[in-house]
């Protein structure tokens, strides 16, 4: 005989029944009491068995439910991952962590706005097969998005070949750092574009794309715009239009920024001032600056030494400081060192 869950209890019942039937209890009242007790035990025993079965069944049901919940969760996670591709990762993250409310709400924030497009994209694409166009555009946007995310940009939208990105919301590292990250990202993109131009030429695309970039820093309205049913997390305002306008004025392969951005990055960026602009919706005259060089390891091949800390900012361009110029620079730096040591 195999294992029985209630073997012991069943045996007690059987023994007790046999005991009564044997007539061993001579006292009638005692026999009746014992029989009543046995009946109650029997009933309790049956109830226990039923309750244990009920409990097991409920447990099995719960496990089944938990499994189906796991499956549903996995499905929802898969779906939300797919949906997340339609959103900027920062926006997705802030919505899913509960930090961001999904409602029509905007705020004013100082952002650094990035606008780019490809020069003569429409004209170039007229000669391309749709498959080639898809390949080139997707390759370009994929590469640029990866760089954007590396530098922490919020990708607002792609409009054909154009990209609107910004820094400073939903996360910010401070206005100056946001502007610096944006400029570094822009330079990294132009560097990558130069590599892509070679790749595309090798693949037989004779008119490779050139990217133009405009950057501006200023107060924008950021948040959810649209309707309660369909909304876009985006930025609007004159400062956004200015970034687009700067982009239109930028040289192919170049980065044009407003003075407001330049002032925040001039410690490590070299730029040339261009003709002033007037932009609708902005009262002030716009002073554009075209980036000519960036002193940032990994973004330039130029040799330089840069030291920056609170109260100290040194940048030595080793390519420019040649011969006598270098001697003069060394003497000046030695003066600085002496001054620092003397505490003057």
């Amino acid at each position: 005989m195999g294992f029985e869950l209630f073997k012991k209890e069943a045996a007690i019942l059987e023994n007790a029944k046999a005991f009564i039937e044997s007539g061993a209890i001579r006292n009638r009242q005692a026999a009746a009491e014992f029989e009543a007790l046995l009946g109650a035990y029997d009933k309790l025993f049956k109830s226990t068995r039923k309750l244990v079965r009920l409990s097991d069944r409920r447990e099995a049901e719960l496990n089944k439910l938990a499994k189906s919940l796991d499956d549903k969760n996995a499905m929802l996670q898969g779906l939300s991952e797919k949906l997340s591709k339609y959103l900027s990762p920062q926006i997705y993250q802030s919505i899913f962590s509960g930090e961001q409310e999904v409602q029509l709400e905007t705020k004013r924030k100082k952002l650094t706005v990035f606008f780019s497009d490809l020069k003569d994209f429409t004209a170039t694409t007229e000669d391309l097969q749709p498959e080639d166009l898809s390949y080139l555009l997707n390759k370009y946007l994929t590469e640029m998005s990866a760089i954007a995310l590396d530098y922490g940009a919020t990708i607002d939208k792609f409009i054909g070949d154009a990209m609107l990105l910004f820094f400073g919301d939903p996360e910010t590292r401070g206005v100056k750092e946001d502007a610096a990250a944006c400029v570094r990202m822009a330079m990294a993109m132009q560097n990558r574009m130069r590599e892509l131009q070679h790749i595309w030429l090798d693949k037989g695309y004779e008119r490779p794309f050139f990217m133009r970039i405009g950057i501006n820093t200023g107060y924008c309205n950021v948040g959810n715009f649209g309707s309660a049913e369909r909304m876009d997390y985006t930025i609007i305002g004159g400062e956004v239009n200015l970034a687009a306008r700067l982009e239109g004025q930028a040289e192919p392969g170049g980065v044009l920024m407003s003075y407001e951005t330049y002032a925040l990055v001039k410690d490590f960026v070299e730029a040339e001032e261009r003709s002033a602009l007037r932009v609708k919706g902005i009262a002030r005259e716009i002073r554009p600056f075209a980036i000519t060089n960036i002193y940032d390891e990994g973004l330039t091949t130029r040799k330089f030494i840069r030291k920056e800390r609170y109260g100290l900012n040194v940048l030595a361009d080793l390519e420019r400081l040649q011969g006598e110029d270098r001697e003069v620079a060394i003497a000046e730096l030695e003066d600085v060192i002496r001054g620092l040591k003397d505490g003057a």
Partner: peptide, 13 residues
């Protein structure tokens, strides 16, 4: 639940 099951068994009895 299990407590209700006990009530139901009593009711059946």
């Amino acid at each position: 639940n299990s407590s209700t099951a006990k009530v139901l068994m009593g009711l059946f009895d």
